[in-house]
Design a protein around this nucleic acid. Sequence first.
DNA 1: TGCACGATCTCG
DNA 2: GAGATCGTGCAT
Length: 171
Amino acid sequence: MKRISQKEFSRDAVQIAQKLLGKTLVRTWDDGSKTHYVITETEAYLGEEDLACHASKGRTPRTEVMYSGGGKVYVYLIYGMYWMLNVVTGAENHPQAVLIRGIDNIIGSGKVGRELKINKSFYGEDLQTSNRIWIEDGPDVTDFNTAPRVGIDYAGDEWKNKPWRFSLIMK
DNA sequence: TGCACGATCTCG
DNA sequence: GAGATCGTGCAT
């Protein structure tokens, strides 16, 4: 299966968040083995005006990669112990990202980061050329749930109520 | 130079 | 319901 192209990732984060559902996340390990995961839950973070998006504070060393255009990995440490895995989307200078909240039956962005052994070295990783993590294309899924995003009470009513959390309907 | 806090999880 | 645990952004 082919990797999702950079052109696809340059689209809007809300569209990509939906498109990534049901797609395959591939992780290769130090011993050469490889694991395939199905992406089951995502969230979209949309630009500087989205108060829930880290880029709403402007361009900083941490958010820099979100300004470089879609198809890169954005990781950050939360609560001093969990690495969050995000995919940068959108055009250059339009900071957006999709948070991977669930893969297979591992639901919860903290658990995903732990399962994938994500760390600071993944910051800025290119999903087109990386040999340790990438996302493969597949059939689009239209059967999914939408819900408000989690853990962003600080963002204010307008933004925290946006239905930008997407999850596969488990059967 | 210091401080409060967060896109979370686990345990009791 | 609280603690673990630390990089980041903003105040001093």
